[in-house]
């Protein structure tokens, strides 16, 4: 029983981080219909932005979170301007962008690998190895903090989308691009901004990931399938769905890890992705089959 509760708590503590990693992917798909396969490799950039200051002068990784977010947002704006904007006219837009982001992921992986080699890295602030104890159950501080910060960021994003004018525009574009354009929304600018926000979320996630998972440039192939599984389960484009999908899957993966062995824990995500795509491509909360 204690083992069960412990496992669930560990899974849920990771869920918040997965949710932040996935939310940018979901936002970008919602607004732009781009399946951003390069998202995890960009998260990796955020992780390196947090890693080097920590390694060289012991700067707290969480302080680097806004820096990583800003750097990634700039990268996002540049990428959108020079790569994705011109693809909007292409006939096979969605397939085209999948291939493009796939190539982009390789470019980022190659750059990071050339610059920093494929060594496993992790930042290790004090709290990363400490834990709170409640009777027999422990809650690792690092994962708990990271999850809390993730939830705060996602809530801020949700409030922004719900109440600001720009948020209205973004949601309108998500719902119906043509109609939004007819009503005077500058769809292109909204695309640029939401792409930048999406990548800023990736940067923030990267800073948090840096003290939770060990990372190396080619690890993003594993992450992409994990992230896609959460996002697809929750329904592509729905941030709330992504958060729920993240908590659900990371709890299930933790259970599988405890009862069947750690190797099979990641397999949970892969099989979940496969099954969801085939049984219910629109995800738990999607209304129409977005991806089909």
């Amino acid at each position: 029983m204690i083992l069960l509760i412990q496992t669930l708590i560990l899974g849920i503590a990771l869920g918040g981080v997965y949710a932040l990693m996935g939310s940018g992917l979901s936002l970008i798909f919602g607004v732009m219909r781009i399946v951003n396969l390069a998202h995890p490799s960009l998260i990796m950039i955020g992780a390196y932005v947090a890693y080097w200051p920590f390694r060289l002068s012991n700067i707290e990784p969480m302080f680097m979170l806004p820096v990583a977010a800003i750097i990634l947002a700039c990268i996002g704006a540049i990428l959108y301007r020079f790569v994705f904007e011109r693809e909007a006219r292409s006939a096979k837009y969605s397939e085209m962008t999948v291939l493009l982001t796939f190539a982009l992921a390789m470019v980022v992986e190659g750059m990071l690998g050339t610059a920093f080699t494929n060594t496993q890295r992790i930042t290790s602030p004090n709290y990363a190895t400490e834990a709170f104890f409640l009777a027999d159950i422990f809650i690792p501080k690092g994962q708990l903090y990271a999850s809390i910060i993730s939830i705060i960021i996602i809530s801020a994003l949700a409030l922004f989308l719900k109440y600001s004018r720009l948020g209205y525009a973004i949601r309108a574009t998500t719902e119906n691009r043509e109609a939004a354009e007819l009503l005077g929304v500058n769809v292109n600018r909204v695309g640029l901004i939401s792409f930048a926000i999406g990548l800023a979320l990736a940067g923030a996630a990267g800073a948090l990931v840096s003290f939770i998972f060990s990372f190396f440039p080619s690890k993003h192939w594993e992450w992409i399938v994990i992230l896609m599984s959460l996002v697809v389960l929750g329904g592509m484009g729905s941030i709330l769905g992504t958060v729920i999908g993240a908590f659900l899957l990371s709890a299930v993966a933790a259970l599988v890890g405890t009862y069947f062995g750690a190797t099979w824990s990641t397999l949970t995500f892969f099989i979940a992705l496969f099954v969801v795509l085939l049984v219910r491509p629109q995800g738990l909360f999607g209304e129409k089959p977005e991806l089909a």
Binding site: M228, S229, W264, F274, L277, P281, L291
Partner: peptide, 24 residues
């Protein structure tokens, strides 16, 4: 028979998941 039921990006992503499953 299973994966070709979905189209476009869905199919691409499912093929990527297939590699990961086989790898493990």
């Amino acid at each position: 028979l299973v994966t070709l039921r979905v189209r476009g990006p869905s199919f691409i992503i499912s093929s990527l998941a297939l590699v990961m499953i086989f790898r493990i």
